[in-house]
Simulated assay, not measured.
Amino acid sequence: MNLHSVAQGKLIDITEVNDEVFSQKMIGNGFAVIPNDEAIYSPIEGTVTSIFPTKHAIGLKTKENIEILLHIGIDTVELKGEPFEIFVKEGDSVSPSTLLAKVDLSLLNKYNKSTDIITIITSENYANLVVNSFGPTSASDSIGYIELN
Score class of each variant (00 low, 15 high):
Ile66Ser: 01
Ala139Cys: 06
Glu45Gln: 13
Asp19Glu: 05
Leu105Cys: 13
Asp92Tyr: 08
Lys55Trp: 04
His4Asp: 00
Asn125Val: 01
Phe134Ile: 15
Asp75Trp: 15
Thr122Trp: 00
Ile51Asn: 10
Pro35Ala: 15
Ser95Val: 02
Asn132Thr: 14
Asp19Ile: 11
Glu124Trp: 14
Leu108Trp: 03
Pro96His: 08
Tyr126Asp: 02
Ser42Leu: 07
Val88Arg: 05
Leu79Phe: 04
Thr62Ile: 09
Glu124Cys: 01
Glu16Pro: 01
Lys10Ile: 15
Gly59Lys: 00
Ile12Leu: 11
Ser95Tyr: 06
Met1Gly: 09
Gln24Val: 05
Gly46Leu: 00
Gln24His: 15
Asn2Arg: 05
Ala39Glu: 12
Lys80Tyr: 12
Lys61Glu: 13
Ile72Lys: 13
Tyr145Ser: 10
Lys25Val: 06
Lys61Asp: 03
Ile14Gln: 12
Glu16Tyr: 14
Gly9Ser: 13
Gly144Leu: 02
Val94Met: 08
Thr54Ile: 10
Tyr41Arg: 13
Gly135Ile: 00
Gly46Trp: 00
Phe22Gln: 05
Ile120Glu: 00
Val130Leu: 14
Lys80Gly: 11
Pro136Ala: 11
Lys102Leu: 11
Pro43Trp: 01
Glu67Ser: 11
Asn36Ile: 12
Asn65Cys: 12
Leu148Lys: 05
His56Phe: 01
Leu79Lys: 15
Asn125Gly: 00
Ile72Tyr: 11
Ile68Asp: 03
Val103His: 07
Leu129Gln: 04
Leu105Asp: 11
Glu90Arg: 15
Ser114Glu: 08
Thr15Met: 08
Lys80Gln: 14
Leu148Gly: 09
Ile40Arg: 09
Leu129Cys: 10
